[in-house]
Structures are given as C-alpha cells and as structure tokens.
C-alpha cells in the first residue's frame, strides 16, 4: 500500500508534465486536425531558453519561465506560418510530413548549435526539500519540487480553462475548431485564431520543458522526443481534441508509467504504455472522454 501511494505521488508529477504537453497537442489537433510532431521539440527549445536566461542573464527562475513561454510561443506561431499554413488545403498527410520535417530540424539544429552535451539547471535554482507526508498513517515522501510541478500545472490548467471559456480568443478557438467556415462567416479571423492556439500550446510546452528539466535534472537537444510522443499518447487516450481529455490522459499515463516502473521493470515501461494505448483504443476508439462520431450517411 505504501509503495502504491508513493507511486501515485511520483506519477502525479510526471503526469502533470505529460498533461501540459498533451494540452498543446490536443489544442492544435482540435483546431486544424494536425498531429504536430514538432510539439515535443518546442518543449526542448523552451527548456533551453530558460536555461540560458538563468545561467547567462542571471534571471530569476520565474522571469525565465515567462521569457521562455514568450519565446516558445513566437517559435510556435512561426512554425505554423511557415510550415503548416501553406498546406492548410493540401490534405492530411502533407502537413504531417512538414511537421516531421520541423521536428527533425529542431532536433538536429539543436544538436548543431548546442552540441550533444547534457546540461542541467544550476543547483539551488529551486530549493527542493523532502516533505514527510502521512496518509492514513502510512509514511510517504514527496519533494517540494514535486508539489511545485503539480501546483504550476493546476494553475496553468485553470488559466487555460479561463482563456478557453471566458475570453474572446477562447470563444473564437472553440468556434474555429467546431466549424472553421462558419466561424469565418461570423467574422472570426481564422488565421489569427490558429496562431493564438499555437502560441498558447507552445507556451504550455515551454513550461513543461522547464519542469521536465528540473524533474530529471538534465536538458538535452533530444529531450523532447519521448515525452512528446508519450504526451501525444496521453492526448489520444483522453480523447484527442478535448482539453479535459488531455488532462485526464496526461495524469493517467504518468501514474500508469510510474506504476509499471515501480512494480515491474522500467525496461518494459515504454512497450507497456503503448500496449495500454492500443487496448484503450480498442475498447473506446475515440479515447476515454471522446464521443464516437460515426460518419453521417
């Protein structure tokens, strides 16, 4: 029981990060039905922006968060304008290929500019202490970092819910994802709305990237690949295109992964995650929270 609860605590922080990344995937998918394979690499760029901000500009970590979010948002919009926008009417596969291209560009560009060395954020950037916890009399441990990750994630989710439901931009996003043509006729600037979506998703990825760097204490040009893919899996598990789905999927995946590593073998973790994905899709082809949309005949 103690191990189980401890794994849940560990899984929550990993799951938070997956959820943050999955949100970006799902927002972009919801609005232009594109699997943005470059999303994981934006996360890496975000982690590095914060790294350079903290190390060379001696920024305070919170300021580094903000600058990294802004930088990544600009990058996200740039990518959309250059690589996806020209292909908006070119079917589903062409933008998927350019997404792979952008992903390869960021990864290898990163390796070229930053080198292959593994870096980590300066020690003491965030003081992480062990917190003794007791639930039902069972002694558990959590670190302040884990709590911080969870807190930031929850705060970000609340902000996102607010933006999506109560701001004009959020309403435009929902309208465009529901029916782009009708939205255009209603006077919504679809191009700008899509850009806003990319900016938001990328800013979220930046936060996830920094948290990932703090959590594993390493950053690397290829650090975004696996978490990116896993987060996409999380978004699909939850029901792609659905914001609550990405949150549920992210947490579920994070907890499941730490359980597999904790009880079984970390070597088997990745294949079992994909097995879970397939099992869920077989039972619920459109994800946990998704509705089964059959084509109207």
């Amino acid at each position: 029981m103690a191990v189980f609860l401890q794994q849940i605590i560990n899984g929550l922080s990993l799951g938070s990060i997956y959820a943050l990344i999955a949100l970006g995937y799902t927002m972009v998918y919801g609005i232009i039905q594109l699997i943005n394979f470059a999303h994981g690499d934006i996360l890496m760029v975000g982690a590095y922006i914060a790294f350079f901000g903290v190390v060379y500009l001696k920024l305070n970590i919170w300021l580094a968060f903000i600058i990294s979010m802004i930088g990544s948002a600009i990058l996200g919009v740039l990518i959309e304008r250059v690589a996806y926008k020209p292909l908006r009417n070119a079917g589903r596969l062409a933008p998927l290929i350019t997404a792979i291209g952008v992903s390869l560009f960021l990864e290898n560009g990163g390796l070229m500019v930053l080198g292959t060395e593994i870096r980590s954020y300066p020690a003491g950037l965030i003081t992480s202490a062990q917190l003794p916890l007791a639930i039902f009399g069972i002694k558990l441990t959590a670190t302040t970092l884990q709590l911080l990750i969870l807190a930031i994630t929850i705060a970000m989710m609340i902000i996102l819910q607010y933006i999506v439901h109560y701001t004009w931009a959020g309403k435009a996003m929902r309208a465009v994802s529901y029916d782009p043509d009708a939205a255009r006729l209603m006077g919504i600037n679809v191009d700008n709305t899509i850009s806003v979506t990319f900016a938001l998703g990328s800013a979220f990825a930046a936060v996830a990237g920094i948290l990932l760097g703090l959590y594993y204490n390493t950053i690397h040009p290829l650090m975004g690949i696996m978490p990116g893919l896993k987060a996409f899996v999380a978004a699909v598990i939850g029901g792609i295109g659905l914001i609550p789905g990405a949150m549920v999927g992210g947490f579920a995946l994070g907890i499941f992964e730490t359980m597999v590593s904790g009880y079984w073998s970390s070597k088997l973790r990745d294949p079992i995650v994909f097995l879970l994905l397939i099992l869920i899709l077989l039972v619920k082809p459109s994800g946990l929270l998704g509705k089964n949309n059959t084509e109207k005949v």
């Binding site: 690589a83 792979i100 291209g101 952008v102 390869l104 560009f105």
Partner: peptide
C-alpha cells in the same frame, strides 16, 4: 538539418 529543410 538540410534534409529537414528540404523536406519542409
């Protein structure tokens, strides 16, 4: 990098 740019 070149390959990626060509692809895009």
């Amino acid at each position: 990098v070149i390959y990626a740019v060509l692809l895009i």
